[in-house]
Design a protein around this nucleic acid. Structure first.
Lengths: 349, 349
DNA sequence: CTGTTAGCGCGTTCAT
DNA sequence: ATGAACGCGCTAACAG
């Protein structure tokens, strides 16, 4: 098979062996010259680099991974429908933070989707094969077994969001989350301080920890109010604008005297805002609104929205930093990081 | 180093060798048993599978890629800012089509971003290292050298969009595009048939072929109208809603008698729609509007919008099919595919 | 049907 | 500073 050629009608891809031959050195020297260049004479160095350029040499990453036990790339896996992935600015913002940190460390970021059970199974098999040095998983619903399963395969995992249950104790699994409970409380307390007494909540999906945490924050404050925290003051949403609008309508129907709304994210706040206005309510005079997120670059989404800011880009960076540390085998100061939030008061409250 | 252990505090990851030993067969037999199972006795088959399960064996993908010369995954690279990637439903839709087709062929899809020059350089180096069997590139701006460069490295490339210039002749590079010229013409001709005579165009980025093609389609029809196709009837947009609104305002300012607008995509149409209404124009009575795309699931974006439908999901599938064929080394019927569009008339015209 | 062997391309000892 | 040799984990080709 001396004559085996690539399917691309070209000649055989140059290997390190060929570069070495071209440069008149051994493969070992060529390898050293190309990485770091320690213990290599100037002459050899230059000869190798010239040969590599001349031949258009590109190191085969599979071979390198095999010997190094590392691929130099990490994955961002999203357990979410592609619609939401591409429509909710939250994902883009996390990705931006992760991306920024990884670029600084010269590691390649790949995004992958794992929506259906079949895909999650495939994702497990795939990542267990170690094409990635580690994975960041965001938007975890329910008691999703995927993160724990991947971590158990020996692949470091960082979850964007909180981790409950036994997964917390898996050594190869870390997390970065905002302090949703405190953040939600600050939002509702702010509404209370503004004299609001009938405060509804449009929650996130209740199969997500983030949804339950923000709901709990709301409840803990509202339950201290005269009217208490009846079921009817809460509507479950799914973080989409449509859910925000629908939620506001339902709250209004159940409580015409509604004077405040806390939504679990800003996208739903936008939906609520337009529904409230369509219902003839003035914001904030009749009903005050507070959201959650305050993502950079989304001022256009809901101008003047009072909201709870979580530093999403920085959280993304933190996820990446944590993961890289785990890949290096470094000890972590804390496996489960909680980041504080900030209330940002604007015109809607 | 007999005792080298993984950093995850666990024992050595099981290799095929260990599975074979556990099953009491040779590595060759174990390999055959695990893939396809040809020429393997029932007994051996079962023993190997049992051993693999017992040990929690996961094949090392790097090793497999190295010998097979194939990774079993392909990349979708987006030359776009993460904001647009995540905000324009077009990308999600292409991704859905690509994804669907790849899943059917059991190949893993990975998304990667290549925005800045530095990132594009890194992307070239990375893909040349063959971690991917092929690459689909969408949203190509200007005379981007990246696709051609990757193809020249022997990695099959399919471009989502048109290809101009010398890249068309690179054997390892194919493309799938809508018939933008004809599509745009049909949109404008439709407006003309509705009696419109003052038809403006809000274009896509003119550094993209798709932007220029749709503009040209508009021009070819409008230039035959009494008023001709003056510069002022065109505004360059960037496919965002804000650009659509701004574009409509500028068109209105230059041509108060504007009675039709063709936008290069539906997202901009939405922006234009609200700007027109804010300016007191009724749609379609005063100004008729036609967009481009008609992506599934976006009825909520611009209800009742007349538009030029391009079958984006199917185009995504076609990109994947084409790429897979190239990876297999199969001959292509046509390297540069052009897909027809359909005018969909609704209430805005 | 099965075991043995030969690489895939590369980084890294270990001598020199 | 350099070359020779080894092995990463796996599949395929070859004998049996």
């Amino acid at each position: 098979m001396e004559d085996s050629r690539a399917a691309d009608g070209g000649r055989q891809r140059p290997t390190l062996e060929m570069v070495a031959a071209e440069a008149g050195v051994s493969r070992g020297t060529a390898s050293r010259a190309l990485n770091g260049g320690h213990n290599v004479s100037r002459r050899a160095m230059e000869a190798v680099q010239a040969a590599a350029t001349r031949l258009g040499y590109r190191p085969n990453l599979a071979a390198r991974s095999l010997v190094l036990g590392r691929s130099g790339s990490i994955g961002l896996v999203v357990s979410e429908s592609d619609e939401r992935l591409f429509s909710d600015p939250y994902f883009a913002t996390v990705a931006r933070g992760v991306h920024a940190e990884l670029m600084a460390h010269d590691v390649q970021l790949v995004l992958a989707l794992a929506q259906t059970p079949a895909e999650r199974e495939r994702m497990l098999r795939w990542s267990a094969g170690r094409p990635l040095d580690g994975v960041i998983i965001i938007s975890v619903h329910g008691a999703d077994p995927l993160p724990g399963a991947i971590a158990t395969e020996g692949v470091p995992v960082v979850i964007g969001g909180a981790v409950e249950g036994p997964d917390r104790d898996i050594p190869g699994l870390a997390s970065v989350d905002a302090d949703n409970l405190t953040g939600a409380r600050s939002a509702v307390e702010h509404l209370v301080s503004r004299g609001r007494t009938r405060i509804g909540h449009i929650s996130g999906p209740l199969d997500m920890v983030v949804g339950r945490d923000r709901l709990e924050g709301w409840r803990s404050v509202v339950s201290g109010l005269p009217g208490g925290a009846p079921q009817t003051l809460t509507v479950e949403g799914d973080f989409t604008e449509a859910a925000g609008a629908e939620g506001a309508r339902r709250l209004l129907a159940a409580h015409p005297d509604l004077d405040g709304v806390f939504t679990a994210n800003d996208v739903m706040a936008r939906g609520a805002l337009s529904a409230l206005q369509q219902a003839g309510r003035r914001v904030p005079q009749d009903v005050a609104v507070v959201g959650f997120d305050d993502l950079p670059g989304t001022e256009g989404i809901s101008p003047g929205l009072t909201t709870v800011r979580q530093p999403v880009i920085e959280m993304g960076r933190q996820m990446a930093r944590t993961l890289l540390a785990m890949v290096e085998g470094l000890p972590l100061a804390e496996r489960h990081t909680v980041v504080p939030t900030t209330l940002v008061v604007r015109e809607t409250s």
